[in-house]
Design a protein around this nucleic acid. Structure first.
Lengths: 257, 257
DNA sequence: GTCAACAAAAATATCGATATTTTATTTCTC
DNA sequence: GAGAAATAAAATATCGATATTTTTGTTGAC
């Protein structure tokens, strides 16, 4: 009897309960491949797997304690998400990052999120308002405690994510929401990498409040304007920090040579 | 010595030269998994693999004469492209189609293609104009020969694809182009399924000409208006044909029961 | 010393076999 | 006969081994 025979391919681990806590819940994971997908995805977005890093199967196998087949499947999926780049017979790597890409992603996110917001505000019912208010207050509560530990930063990302999601939740276009989510995640990778400390700045908190109020007032134009500023500023901050980051790496490379 | 030993995993087939002819060329295929990805993708978009169809590995293995591993990898990639739906421990299926989805995709394609067009017209240089003119004339030549055989229809799709691509080619947002392409492909699946014969109608040909001329005149607003009508009409035709298609299937199901 | 040809090592892509889960079928009970 | 429980069949997900390609390292020629 193999080790897995007792509890199936996907045996429970302590980490699994954490999914529920740190939720961006997406239904239970039924296969190891799904777990591999989630783990890799999180590590790429969080920056734990650095941009440009060569993803060798053996390395990932030991890192996650999973077999090669599920990891391969996860990498294939991530390549279509544009988080991993497959290179023919030459393995794969974490998609590199660049200032130009940061700008592009920021603009794209703006385009999609603004459109979704407009529709959502038009469609939202009472239930939507309630969920939005809840998400806003959770986020605001955290933002009031200014001292941002490293844990708080991750939690802030989650709450921020949920607030933005709640804003557009009443949008009835599945495709628009799907693409918005894609760009939000791509954007998040940049936010995390550049460790935008400005994250909990009073400005951002105020923008969140303005967004919230405009949404409840059903003032779509106001909300759109605020959202555009909001995303624009985030992007600017990211680009700014990231440009320095790139310079620093450049310098480092020169020093090595 | 195994069968593959003489020519490597990916041995040449007669079908391979066809890639170049029926081109949406994407670089040479270095692995069987890539070939599987392309084949499956084409068959899903063309409708050869029907929406909702359960994709059993064994069936695909014999259909394409490939091993299970590459097929599995292809399915994983297609799931992130939203052409295949993975269902936990229960295999996968071709993503189903619906009238609502057709509308959603049409609107999304409109949003993205219009935005890309605006930027492209603003940026396009002489080289862009030349390529656009070439694409337009190839398409127009075909559209003049009204008698649309089944082969012509596939060729029309290719030329239409290339014309639209040429229009937005000068857009400098990689992400916008990527997403536009995604929606174009999704839209194509609906166009093909509903076999929109209206495809070569005088109207559409005229719209193409109007698009072409507005683009060369750098009249972005005009081009955008035409594009919106153009995509809107295509979507309407698709929705119309597809709605009947759905009704027919409904009726069929009742008759069976 | 540099470059090319060659050999050794590492890593990938693929296959075939196995364990597991789902689905279909049969058997039993009422 | 209908429905539940048990069983058999089919299909999936995963593993371990193998073939192949890429990369690295070495040797020899100039």
């Amino acid at each position: 009897m193999s080790k897995a025979a007792r509890a199936g391919y996907l045996r429970e681990t302590s980490a699994m309960s954490e999914i529920l806590v740190n939720m961006r819940y997406d239904g239970p994971e039924r296969t190891i491949a799904e777990r591999a997908y989630r783990l890799l995805r999180e590590d790429i977005i969080s920056g734990a797997l650095a941009p440009g890093l060569k993803l060798k199967i053996e390395m990932l196998r030991t890192r996650y304690g999973l077999g090669a087949a599920p990891i391969r499947e996860a990498l294939a999926r991530l390549s279509s998400d544009h988080l991993v780049k497959l290179e023919g017979q030459r393995g794969c790597e974490v998609v590199p990052m660049s200032v130009a890409d940061a700008r592009d992603i920021g603009n794209m996110r703006k385009l999609l999120e603004v459109e979704a917001l407009r529709i959502s505000i038009g469609n939202g019912d009472e239930e939507w308002e309630n969920a939005l208010a809840a998400a806003f207050h959770r986020l605001e509560r955290l933002e009031r405690t200014i001292d941002q530990g490293i844990d708080d930063l991750a939690e802030w990302e989650t709450l921020n994510h949920q607030f933005h999601k709640a804003l557009v939740a009443a949008c009835d276009s599945a495709w628009l929401l799907r693409m918005r989510q894609l760009m939000f995640d791509q954007h998040e990778r940049y936010r995390r990498l550049s460790r935008v400390k400005t994250v909990a700045t009073r400005d951002i908190s105020l923008e969140h409040r303005a967004l919230f109020e405009a949404a409840l007032d059903r003032d779509a134009e106001k909300a759109v304007t605020v959202m555009e500023t909001h995303i624009g500023r985030t992007t600017d901050a990211v680009v700014h920090t990231f440009a320095r980051h790139e310079l620093a790496e450049e310098a480092l490379r020169h020093k090595e040579a």
